[in-house]
Structure formats: C-alpha cells, structure tokens
C-alpha cells in the first residue's frame, strides 16, 4: 500500500474543517483549499437515531 502519511507531507492539503470556524479561516488566509462544516451533534445526540442515520445517509 502507498504510504499516505508520506504523501500527506508532499501533497497540497485539501481540508474538511469540522467545528471551529476560526480554524477554517486561518487556513483560508494561507490559501489552503478548505471547506467549513458547521458540525452539530447528529440527531441531537439520540444514539438510536445516530445508528440508523449512519446506514441511511
């Protein structure tokens, strides 16, 4: 298998930032390709629902 850790150090980073918007903003300032995900607790934290959603979306 190719070593993706070594690749990670050579490639351009493309980042999914989940949570603090500031982290995404600082990456944007560095002209890094980043998408901000405003993460929220899935299903308001309802575990049974989270398990079902995992399979359906």
């Amino acid at each position: 298998m190719e070593d993706k850790v070594e690749d990670l150090l050579q490639e351009e980073l493309v980042i999914i930032n989940m949570g603090l918007r500031g982290f995404a903003e600082s990456l944007e300032q560095q002209e890094v390709e980043v998408v901000q995900v405003d993460w929220i607790p899935p299903a308001g934290g309802d575990q049974e629902m989270i398990d079902i959603l995992e399979k359906l979306m």
Binding site: P42, G44, I52, L56
Partner: peptide, 8 residues
C-alpha cells in the same frame, strides 16, 4: 426525514 432527524 433523514435530514430532519440528523439536524434536529
């Protein structure tokens, strides 16, 4: 319904 439950 998935989105309703997911986003609450």
């Amino acid at each position: 319904i998935r989105k309703v439950v997911q986003t609450n």
